[in-house]
């Protein structure tokens, strides 16, 4: 692995099998603080399964998941989230009946530990409202704070999910195809937003849009059949013959 002294996220020799099917095959990779590490690969390469093993939704059969040097294999999903993992799903997951700002507020409550307050009206909590609104404003959703999440457009849902990630004050963002299903304008805006996050958070980005990946990433890893076949800077990956044949295809890059 690279010579980073203390990676934010480190995966060592991760193996995950479903019966005879090996979806993650001895995989090691790391994300340094502030680094945007992109993971690309064809459909079925095991990208989403890998994310799920980082978040704790899946338990690896072998290997280690380390966050800031601490082994977190045995921690539950909520425990890992509280240690600084924030995830955006391929299909945004939101609290559909709550408004945009209320969605953000739940993430803020998780961070502040105020979710157990039984008696005080959440709508009267000024600190909560300010923190939630500022999370929305960071993704440009400050003006739709009172709309119900289920009625937002696909792009707005994506952004709201990111806002919820920020509200939780994470160290590492796990973004699963944040550009999928977005129109051209939304997509361009999302790329700019992601660019603005670089350096502030460690980001593990799974994305099919190769052009966006090469323009954003500090490092790119290519996953095929549960194994990394290459890992390096965007330029190294573009030049890699293995990658060209396995994934990028003849006209790639």
């Amino acid at each position: 692995m690279s010579a980073q002294p203390e990676p934010l996220l480190e995966l060592r020799g991760l193996v995950k099998r479903f019966g005879a099917l090996v979806v993650t095959d001895g995989l090691s990779l790391s994300v340094a603080p502030g680094e945007l590490h992109a993971l690309i690969g064809p459909n079925g390469a095991g990208k989403s399964c890998l994310i799920a093993q980082v978040t704790g939704e899946l338990t690896p059969d072998e290997g280690e998941v380390r966050l800031r040097g601490e082994r977190i294999n045995a921690l539950s999903v909520p425990q890992r989230a509280r240690r600084g993992l924030a995830r955006a799903y391929q299909v945004p997951r939101l609290f559909g009946s709550l408004s945009a700002i209320e969605n953000a507020s739940v993430a803020e409550m998780a961070r502040a530990g105020s979710g157990s307050r039984l008696w005080h009206a959440a709508s009267d909590d000024r600190d909560l409202a300010i923190a939630s609104l500022s999370a929305l404003q960071r993704v440009g959703l400050g003006d739709i704070d009172n709309r119900v999440a289920a009625q937002l457009s696909h792009g707005e849902k994506r952004l709201l999910e990111l806002a919820m990630g920020f509200a939780a004050d994470p160290a590492l963002l796990l973004l699963d195809e944040p550009l999928a299903g977005l129109g051209l304008a939304d997509s361009a805006a999302m790329v700019e937003l992601l660019r603005s996050l670089k350096g502030r958070y460690g980001i593990l980005l799974v994305e099919h849009d190769v052009e966006a990946v090469f323009s954003l990433a500090d490092r790119v890893s290519v996953l095929v059949g549960g194994r990394l076949i290459a890992s390096g800077t965007p330029d190294e990956i573009k030049a890699d013959a293995n990658v060209r044949s396995a994934y990028l295809g003849e006209g790639g890059a």
């Binding site: 978040t55 939704e57 539950s76 999903v77 909520p78 425990q79 989230a81 509280r82 924030a86 995830r87 799903y89 997951r93 939101l94 609290f95 559909g96 009946s97 709550l98 209320e102 969605n103 507020s105 739940v106 993430a107 409550m109 998780a110 961070r111 105020s114 979710g115 157990s116 307050r117 039984l118 008696w119 005080h120 009206a121 959440a122 709508s123 909590d125 909560l128 919820m164 939780a168």
Partner: peptide
């Protein structure tokens, strides 16, 4: 009405809407 309008009530509604998401943001 107090309970359902509280922080707690909002978390309960969030759990109803999307349990997976609630876990992912750090609440069981």
């Amino acid at each position: 009405r107090r309970i359902t309008g509280s922080h707690f009530g909002r978390v309960v509604i969030a759990a109803r809407d999307n349990e997976t998401k609630l876990r992912a943001i750090g609440l069981s």
